[in-house]
Measured scan of single mutants.
Amino acid sequence: KELVLVLYDYQEKSPRELTVKKGDILTLLNSTNKDWWKIEVNGRQGFVPAAYLKKL
């Protein structure tokens, strides 16, 4: 499993997105899109802007 660090808080703006908090370490599911990465948070899957995340 690949992990990502959340660099900035992000509030979901659609049902396909997820809310994340700065400092969270989460599972990366897909990073093929350069702008939006798919991650998992508490069993939910969704997208967060790639600029808000850093691969560990």
Results as ranks from 00 to 15, higher is better:
R16I: 15
L5Y: 09
G46T: 03
L28R: 01
D24H: 07
G23D: 06
K22D: 02
L53A: 01
K38E: 14
K1P: 14
D35F: 12
E2Y: 11
W37N: 01
D24M: 11
E17R: 09
W37V: 02
N30R: 06
L56Q: 06
L5N: 02
A51C: 08
D35G: 11
S14L: 07
P49W: 03
T32M: 13
Y10L: 01
L5K: 07
E12G: 14
L7N: 02
T19G: 06
G46N: 02
V20P: 00
Y10W: 09
V20A: 03
I39F: 02
Y52P: 01
Y52L: 15
E12P: 13
L18T: 09
L3E: 09
G23C: 05
K55C: 06
N33A: 10
G23Y: 04
K54H: 15
K1H: 15
G46D: 02
Y10V: 01
E17K: 08
K55T: 08
Q11W: 15
G46K: 02
S14V: 05
L29R: 05
Q45I: 11
N30Y: 08
V4G: 02
W37Q: 01
E17V: 04
V41R: 12
A51M: 09
D9M: 03
L3D: 04
K13R: 13
V4W: 04
G43T: 06
D9R: 03
L3T: 09
Q11A: 15
L3A: 06
A50Q: 07
K1V: 14
K34M: 10
Q45N: 10
V41E: 10
D24Q: 13
K1D: 14
E12D: 09
P15E: 13
V4Q: 00
E17T: 08
N42H: 08
I39L: 13
K21A: 11
R16Y: 12
K34W: 08
Y10G: 01
W37G: 01
K13D: 08
I39T: 08
W37L: 02
S31L: 04
Y52S: 08
N33D: 15
K21Q: 12
L28F: 04
T27N: 11
L3Y: 10
Y52W: 07
D35K: 14
W36C: 06
T27Q: 12
V20D: 00
R44T: 10
L7E: 03
E2R: 09
L18V: 12
L29S: 03
F47C: 06
G23H: 05
G43E: 09
K54N: 08
Y52T: 08
K38M: 12
E17Q: 14
P15S: 14
P15I: 07
S14D: 12
G46E: 03
S14R: 12
I25S: 02
L29V: 15
W37H: 02
T19E: 05
V41P: 00
L26A: 15
D35P: 02
W37P: 01
D24R: 04
D24A: 13
N30A: 10
V20Q: 00
S14Q: 09
L28P: 00
L5D: 01
T19W: 05
V4F: 03
S14G: 13
K34I: 11
I39V: 14
Q45W: 10
K22V: 08
A51D: 15
N42W: 06
K38H: 12
R44I: 14
G23V: 00
E2S: 14
Q45R: 12
D9S: 10
L7T: 06
L56C: 07
K13G: 09
L3I: 11
T19Y: 05
P49H: 03
W36D: 02
G43Q: 07
Y8N: 12
T27W: 13
E17G: 12
L7R: 06
S31E: 15
Y8S: 09
L3M: 11
A51W: 15
Q11M: 12
K55W: 06
L53T: 01
P15N: 13
V41L: 14
L18M: 15
W36R: 03
L7Q: 04
E12W: 07
G23E: 02
K21D: 04
